[in-house]
Amino acid sequence: MDPVGETGEVSRVRARSGTPVDQITLDGVLAGEVSLDDIRIHPDTLLAQAEVATRAGNAQLGENFRRAAELTALTDERVLAIYEALRPHRSSAADLDLIAAELDDLGATRNASLVREAARVYAARGLLR
């Protein structure tokens, strides 16, 4: 099974910015032409990796990569904030509902359902704020 980045069409893999991975060069760095978005993974690449993981027999790893693909749309700060909100006793049911709605709006539906599932279990187990 071929890994995504080694399929012989390396240039097909693009960074989140759209720059083909083989065009991320040291000369570019020295010229100040490489941005942080050029070293971020593209959601399509994560979806392709999800396929690889699932075919290799790990559906949960595939699902993780699909959630990750959705999270590429979020800023670092927002990702850190949602992680914090999911920790025990940080959020009310309403807080988690709001986050789930925000994620749905961003097309991050898998993450939204993860947050809703958390809200249900947290309510049952006394882990809400």
Binding site: N64, F65, L71, D76, L80, R87, A118
Partner: peptide
């Protein structure tokens, strides 16, 4: 788990957060 200040859902989210940044 909760004493460790996390839940399976926060850890699952964290796991995806890492993957989302490659």
């Amino acid at each position: 788990f909760v004493d460790g200040d996390d839940t399976p859902w926060s850890k699952a989210f964290l796991t995806s957060a890492y993957a989302s940044r490659g």
